[in-house]
Amino acid sequence: ETKSLTLVLHRDSGSLGFNIIGGRPSVDNHDGSSSEGIFVSKIVDSGPAAKEGGLQIHDRIIEVNGRDLSRATHDQAVEAFKTAKEPIVVQVLRR
């Protein structure tokens, strides 16, 4: 079962304390579909994302501050987090 969660993150020394993997390839599949998503791959101990109620590894990131990342490329997702103003509201899907 997958549930949708909304989390609020604040940077600590400029970092949110997690890494992402995935992202849509720069070239779409011929039918326009994509199974890619942006997923949390690593969480830094005691970083902002590790706090209670924070992110978990394998969370799929859907949205950052209202910006849809469900079909974003990896670079677009990285840029969305880099430029996001605080508080950073992150919507994820968690299995």
Score class of each variant (00 low, 15 high):
94 R>D: 01
9 L>H: 03
78 V>D: 06
31 D>E: 13
46 S>Q: 10
33 S>P: 11
43 I>S: 02
19 N>P: 00
35 S>R: 09
47 G>V: 07
7 L>E: 01
26 S>M: 10
74 H>R: 14
93 L>T: 08
68 D>A: 03
71 R>F: 12
45 D>R: 09
87 P>I: 00
73 T>L: 03
95 R>P: 14
86 E>T: 06
94 R>P: 02
68 D>V: 02
72 A>C: 08
34 S>M: 11
14 G>H: 06
43 I>L: 09
12 D>L: 09
60 R>L: 03
28 D>M: 09
31 D>I: 09
5 L>C: 07
83 T>P: 03
63 E>N: 14
73 T>V: 02
94 R>C: 00
21 I>L: 07
28 D>W: 09
37 G>M: 03
93 L>K: 07
39 F>H: 05
23 G>D: 06
38 I>K: 01
64 V>D: 15
30 H>C: 11
38 I>G: 00
5 L>E: 04
43 I>P: 02
15 S>D: 14
67 R>M: 15
25 P>E: 12
54 G>L: 11
10 H>F: 10
42 K>T: 11
88 I>G: 00
72 A>W: 01
32 G>E: 13
95 R>W: 05
55 L>Q: 00
19 N>V: 05
72 A>P: 01
66 G>A: 03
8 V>T: 15
54 G>M: 10
3 K>P: 06
69 L>R: 01
72 A>E: 03
9 L>G: 03
70 S>A: 07
12 D>T: 15
94 R>I: 02
28 D>V: 12
67 R>N: 10
21 I>S: 14
18 F>V: 03
25 P>H: 09
11 R>A: 03
58 H>M: 13
26 S>P: 12
4 S>G: 05
9 L>D: 03
33 S>H: 12
33 S>V: 14
50 A>I: 08
49 A>W: 06
11 R>I: 03
20 I>G: 02
44 V>E: 13
12 D>S: 12
25 P>M: 11
52 E>I: 10
1 E>C: 11
8 V>H: 15
41 S>H: 07
44 V>R: 12
37 G>A: 03
47 G>P: 05
66 G>C: 02
7 L>D: 01
69 L>V: 10
45 D>K: 13
33 S>D: 14
32 G>K: 14
24 R>A: 13
67 R>T: 14
12 D>I: 15
83 T>S: 07
42 K>E: 15
42 K>L: 05
22 G>K: 11
28 D>F: 11
68 D>Y: 02
25 P>Q: 10
93 L>Y: 06
62 I>E: 02
37 G>C: 03
58 H>P: 01
54 G>Y: 07
42 K>F: 08
10 H>W: 09
62 I>Y: 03
58 H>D: 13
41 S>A: 08
1 E>H: 14
9 L>A: 02
68 D>T: 03
65 N>R: 00
70 S>Q: 09
39 F>Q: 04
18 F>S: 01
26 S>T: 13
89 V>K: 12
30 H>Q: 15
67 R>L: 13
61 I>D: 02
53 G>P: 07
69 L>T: 04
29 N>D: 14
52 E>P: 12
38 I>Q: 01
6 T>Q: 14
